[in-house]
Amino acid sequence: MNPVNYLYLAALLFAIGATGVLIRRNAIVVFMCIELMLNACNLALVAFSRMHGNLDGQIIAFFTMVVAAAEVVVGLAIIVSLFRSRHSASVDDASLMKL
């Protein structure tokens, strides 16, 4: 098997995640799809790291994980506070930028 297959898998997962972001309207599920896209990027970075024989790709994947963790914390806090003020987690309901 050619290691490029990992890149194809990453591309597929990224496209599925992007489709989910476009289709779903529950804010939590949209957020999960974004996580899926980030993970797909990480897989591609790890595969690149193996192809080129250095660890820089893995370092960047590591930074991606840190940023994703921070993003999830803030994003879920925003969803919770939105739910508190609007009693809904649908992205359609949060159409006005006011509480």
Binding site: P3, Y6, F31, N42, V46, A47, R50, Q58, A61, M65
Partner: peptide, 27 residues
């Protein structure tokens, strides 16, 4: 598992601990 197979042992473990352990439970 794919990270482990690609020789990224540290990232594979971090993926399990951080993503499936912390982030998904937060979700």
């Amino acid at each position: 598992v794919f990270y482990l197979a690609n020789g990224a042992y540290f990232l594979g473990i971090v993926q399990i601990v951080v993503y499936t352990g912390a982030i998904m439970m937060l979700f």
